[in-house]
Amino acid sequence: MSPAVLIAVAIVLPPLLRIIYTSVHGPALSLTSYAEVVKSNLFRETLRTTFIIAGSASVLSLLLGFIVALHLARQPAQRRTALMVLVLLPFWTSILVKCFAFTIILGRDGIINSLLSWIFDTRIQLPLVLNRIGTLVGMTNYLIPLIVLPVLASLLAIDSTIYRAASIMGAKPARIFWTVTVPMSLPGVFAGLLSIFVMSLGTFIIPALLGGRRDQMLSNLVDFYNRQVLDWAKASSISIVLFGIAAAFIIPLILWRRRKA
């Protein structure tokens, strides 16, 4: 094992073992809390919400991020580097700061509603935050830089003479896009999509600050059992289930990447 792996293991493993221990150590050493979690309607519904939000946010981020990556790929190298900084800027900003910024932008009397009110000269208060829209805006904003990078890498890996060849053979831009660009960027798209999906499974702050009651995800449920119910065994067992789900998605991706390399 390399030093980096050793450090990671040393930092991650003890707290993880501690959580596993807590999850089975209720009144007695048992799997009761897992059984209760699985049976609970709240857990089932939250799990469903988690998948729906993570899935739709990932797909939305992919669609928007693909357009950004496509534009970046067509720029000269120097200009591309400058534009990359713009893409990464929100990535370097604290997620808390961004969430508060979105409440100001999307709020009942926020920038967007004020602007619409002024344009239509009437009071408009579209519900853009503390609901699914707010959650998805926050999630997409968080995920786009993470999907742009792998997609851009796979777009840049496409040999430009293939585009020239297709064009000389008579293909129009739309056909070139669907027969060359899309299929050849698919590996990057697939890997990127899976990794942002897994990342968004564990989102906590965004649904907590920008979502409503119906947008709470598994991390928020962990927080709920931890701080409101004070049932640490259940909180831990939900964490472990979430960890297992994430692993179930990420391990095939790692294996696939290793096989490709």
Partner: peptide
Amino acid sequence: IGMVFQNYALMPH
């Protein structure tokens, strides 16, 4: 017009 390229420019997929 048809063109043959030095690096072949075949579609790998």
